[in-house]
């Protein structure tokens, strides 16, 4: 074996002592600090992996009154929507949708199902053109009692909504009581009916 000679160190200074034996009696607690920090990081990462955070942005407006809004009519055969439509004592749905939104097509039959059992659904078409909305309704059915048109997504900022489609349950006094994010599927229909009942 070709080991390099270890040369004697000229001065018997403290630095020349082996680093691990400089003070053999008691270790300083700070030596374990890096491991402790790593332990915390590991726990954090493991939590992040096991229970990945929900990427949806939930509205903070639930339980708060629906802000005032007044939107123009989207299609000729349905009246416009304003906040006043939500304060007649009857719980309703407020659905934001758009003709350019693919999941909106998927949820159309379930909205119709809700409308068929007597739920009043007010829709707002986001960033949409009248004829496009009309064509969309002709193709996928029209479950809406009223449809407003919002070209600048203002209603979404009012509701704390971050995409289309989203559906809000509004009680009879104009309070937002529930938010459904994404398209409504078969399994969501009973949940929404339940929430409407709770909002009575």
């Amino acid at each position: 074996m070709n080991r390099w000679p270890r040369l004697p160190i000229p001065s018997p200074s403290e630095a020349a002592r082996p680093w691990h034996e400089a003070r053999p009696i008691m270790k300083h607690w700070a030596i374990w600090l890096p491991l402790a920090v790593f332990g915390v990081l590991f726990a954090l990462f493991a939590t992040g992996l096991i229970a990945p955070g929900d990427r949806t942005i939930v509205s903070q407006m639930i339980g708060k009154p629906l802000p005032a809004f007044d939107l123009p009519q989207a299609v000729p055969d349905r009246p416009a929507v304003t906040r006043a439509n939500f304060t007649d004592g009857k719980p309703k749905l407020l659905n934001v949708f758009a003709s350019w939104c693919v999941p909106c097509v998927a949820e159309a039959p379930y909205l119709q199902q809700l409308a068929d059992v007597g739920v009043e659904i007010n829709g707002v078409a986001i960033r949409d053109r009248g004829p496009d909305v009309q064509a969309f309704l002709a193709r996928n059915g029209n479950p809406y009692a009223r449809i407003g048109s919002d070209d600048v997504s203002k209603i979404q900022f009012d509701l704390g909504s971050s995409g289309v489609p989203e559906t809000f349950v509004i009680d009879g006094k104009g309070m937002i009581t529930y938010q459904h994010i994404g398209d409504i599927r078969a399994e969501h229909v009973p949940v929404i009916l339940e929430k409407l009942k709770e909002a009575q």
């Binding site: 403290e14 630095a15 680093w19 003070r23 270790k27 890096p34 491991l35 990462f45």
Partner: peptide, 26 residues
Amino acid sequence: LALLAIYIGGALALFGLRASTVTEGS
């Protein structure tokens, strides 16, 4: 993450065992 635990955790544990003081030297 498993690799992280083995290598980094292991190295830091070895560090804790081998290092004895924070301010060795002058």
